[in-house]
């Protein structure tokens, strides 16, 4: 945190305000159970948003992540169900399933990155296309219905979402690790600096002998990996995937990144800000459910207002500072 100005503290201030509001409205808000729920729920979008931070910082965008998550979940469930006769139910099956999720995630991210960097199509168009492709594929392999993991396998795999160590659920632990690693990579590695440089001005980066295409490709592969990781934690929750899995996750992830202070036009990434953004989004939902503040019809409006407010708070100074 190099410059502690209002602009960097804006999202944090919004988060603290929300927490105070929540605690004021409902006594159960700060209970361990509710905090676990909110953090574990945030983990999927959170991990994806960390990857999205890199993509957006490099000047790209990925609209396909929600559909990609559904597709990976579908492939993972299919693969695990198919491997039960060979591997039996146990650790090898779960590890194999996780391997499938990671591989499919890497492949999907690579496909996006390849089309963008090697074929040279706009990221918006490529990922709009793959968004449709992934979602149709999962609907197709599920025959329009829901793919469900075998019941016994599900029971064995279930603790990956619901259990944890020292009372902290696994999704929260993994999310925390991903967030810390993301922050370190963004701030303290060459990859992170190159990502920002490309997003700021890719021509200058190219003249400075940065391998622009390769770094761009890597940001999409990295995002695909994180979508795979998120899916690994998502599948044990309900043990199913369908055409409606991960609907609008891409927009939530992008919103979280922008709320957190990363510039949509690229060039400046804040991983910790993204984490705050994700928490803000989950907390709004949670508070609206816990308190009967407004008609549920207006939930979307309240979310919209808070998203815009969080960004206004944060932009107050950054426009004056310039870049």
């Amino acid at each position: 945190m190099r410059n502690l100005s209002l602009s960097t503290l804006g999202p944090l201030a919004a988060l603290i305000l929300l927490i105070v509001l929540g605690a004021f409205l409902n006594a159960n808000f700060l209970s361990a159970g509710n905090i676990t729920n909110v953090l574990a729920r945030s983990a999927f979008i959170g991990m994806i948003a960390v990857g999205m931070t890199f993509v957006i910082t490099s000047g790209g965008i990925d609209l396909s992540v929600g559909s990609m998550a559904a597709f990976i979940a579908g492939m993972m469930i299919l693969a695990m169900n198919a491997m039960i006769p060979a591997l039996g139910i146990g650790l090898p099956l779960v590890l194999a399933g996780m391997g499938v999720a990671i591989l499919v995630g890497l492949a999907a991210g690579f496909a996006n990155g390849f089309l963008i960097t090697k074929v040279g199509i706009e990221p918006f168009i490529v990922t709009l296309g793959t968004m449709g492709i992934f979602r149709s594929l999962v609907t197709w392999i599920a025959n329009g219905g829901t793919l469900s993991l075998d019941f016994e396998a599900r029971q064995f795999y279930r603790p990956v979402y619901y259990d944890g160590i020292f009372g902290i659920a696994w999704p929260i632990i993994v999310f925390a690790i991903v967030a810390v690693l993301g922050e370190v990579v963004m701030r303290h590695t060459r990859f992170g600096r190159y990502t920002e440089a490309i997003g700021s001005n890719d021509k200058v980066a190219r003249y400075s002998v940065v391998k622009v295409e390769r770094i761009r490709l890597l940001t999409y592969v990295f995002l695909g990996l994180l979508v795979g990781l998120a899916t690994i934690l998502y599948v044990p929750r309900l043990g199913s995937a369908s055409g409606s899995t991960g609907l609008l996750w891409e927009l939530e992830a992008i919103a979280a990144v922008i709320i957190g202070g990363t510039a949509l036009k690229g060039g400046s990434g804040r991983v910790w800000g993204t984490v705050v953004g994700v928490l803000i989004l989950s907390l709004i939902d949670n508070i609206l459910n816990l308190a009967d503040l407004v008609s549920p019809y207006l939930n979307g409006a309240i979310q919209g207002v808070i998203i815009v407010l969080a960004v206004v708070l944060q932009r107050g100074k950054s426009t004056a500072e310039g870049r």
């Binding site: 409902n26 808000f29 209970s31 159970g33 509710n34 899995t245 949670n286 459910n289 549920p296 939930n299």
Partner: peptide, 23 residues
């Protein structure tokens, strides 16, 4: 006690029910 929208969706219903149970 309450009636919130779960949008005929498993994930949304899961989240809403978690919050009902806290509340």
């Amino acid at each position: 006690l309450d009636k919130q929208h779960g949008n005929w969706n498993r994930d949304d219903a899961f989240t809403v029910m978690q919050d009902y149970l806290s509340k």
